[in-house]
């Protein structure tokens, strides 16, 4: 059987608006990926452990509360510390343009803001899937 791409969709922080996360999860499922969804209000530690145990290739973080500058980089550093060196991390939600370059510097490789066509997310995954480890 060929390698299947596994993606964790996670919601750190305290907001409960998960329609975006669910929409992405569903669309990625329809694109043929295995999506692990962990629900709302996850701590960075829980997201990191889930990513490691599920051996995912990508982690997509969704956040609408404004705490992305703190929580997204924390997830990245925890995952790196736990040995998830090759896991590709991206984010989405209500994120001001000014914050995007900061987040990219911190290892969040792509940010998808509201209104992004789902095709862009799939293109991002397809463009980077050669980097994942087996």
């Amino acid at each position: 059987m060929a390698k299947k791409i596994r993606i964790l969709i996670a919601k750190p922080g305290l907001d409960g608006h998960d329609r975006g996360a669910k929409y992405i999860a569903r669309a990625l499922k329809d694109a043929g990926y295995e999506v692990i969804y962990t629900g709302i209000r996850q701590s960075p530690q829980a997201i990191c452990k889930s990513a490691i145990q599920e051996d995912v290739d990508f982690v997509g973080l969704s956040l609408l509360s404004g705490a992305h500058n703190e929580l997204f980089p924390e997830v990245v550093s925890l995952i790196r510390k736990e040995g998830g060196d090759n896991i590709i991390i991206f984010g989405g939600g209500v994120i001001p343009n000014d914050d995007i370059s900061y987040l990219k510097k911190k290892g969040i490789e792509a940010i998808f803001t509201p209104g992004t066509p789902i095709k862009d997310v799939i293109n991002f995954i397809e463009a980077n899937k050669s980097r994942i480890s087996h």
Partner: peptide, 10 residues
Amino acid sequence: SGGAILGDRI
């Protein structure tokens, strides 16, 4: 699609 949503962890 061969994809899946794995939601038992929730």
